[in-house]
Simulated assay, not measured.
Amino acid sequence: MNSTTMNMEIYLQLTQFYQDYAAAVDAADWDSWIEMFADDCTYRIQSRENHERNLPMAALSLDGKGMLKDRIYGITETIFHDPYMQNHVIAAPRILGLSPDLIEAQANYAVFRTKNDGIAQVFNVGRYIDRIRQTADGLRIESRICVFDNDMILNSLIYPI
């Protein structure tokens, strides 16, 4: 298999991975969402301004699968909030770097939110900046930074982006 064929195969796997991610979050399939991450992962949701200025402030910052599990426990068991549904639209990813076991990629996203008694509205727009590890068990997110374009997030940020 030549490198072009191999790169196309990786690209198709990565594209499917991004769509599986969106499906898991949109369906609130939190077990599947957590399993998409490496054990020692980083997950951060940060404004474009803070990201570009290399400032550490983030709307949400989780390190390791344990913190992801804690967040999901909070969402499902302890946080009282007005429920809403999310729908992700993720653009085709761009591979920025590729090594035998690591993919560096970016993809634009838009998240629409719909409450039971309302209409759909744009909730969050931005890009994923990812480091994705190729493992024997499939692709796993080592680092995901969700850099959102809007200065403010509608209400509060409950579910992952």
Rank of each mutant, 00 (worst) to 15 (best):
N50E: 00
S3W: 13
Y18N: 08
A120L: 04
I90K: 08
S3I: 14
R144P: 03
N108V: 12
N54P: 00
D117S: 13
G64Y: 01
L102A: 04
I119D: 11
D70L: 05
T42C: 11
W33A: 04
S99R: 15
N7K: 11
A92Q: 09
A91N: 09
H88K: 09
Y11W: 03
E104N: 15
I79D: 06
D101Y: 09
N87M: 08
Q16K: 06
E142P: 03
N54G: 07
T78L: 09
D20Y: 01
T4P: 00
N108A: 15
W30K: 05
R127E: 04
F17E: 07
D63K: 10
I95H: 11
Y84E: 10
G66W: 09
S3N: 13
E142I: 08
W30S: 05
P100Q: 15
D20T: 03
P83I: 05
L96E: 14
D39H: 08
A91P: 02
D101E: 12
N7S: 09
G138Q: 15
A58R: 02
D82T: 07
R133P: 02
Y18V: 10
L102W: 05
Y73D: 10
T78D: 01
T5D: 06
I95W: 11
R127M: 07
N2P: 14
T114V: 15
T4D: 07
V122W: 02
I141S: 04
N2S: 15
A136W: 13
M152G: 01
D63V: 08
T78Q: 08
N124C: 12
C146M: 10
P56C: 03
T42F: 07
Y18L: 13
L62P: 06
L60V: 14
A23N: 05
Y128K: 03
F112K: 07
Q13V: 02
L139P: 14
Y128H: 03
Y84A: 03
Y21I: 03
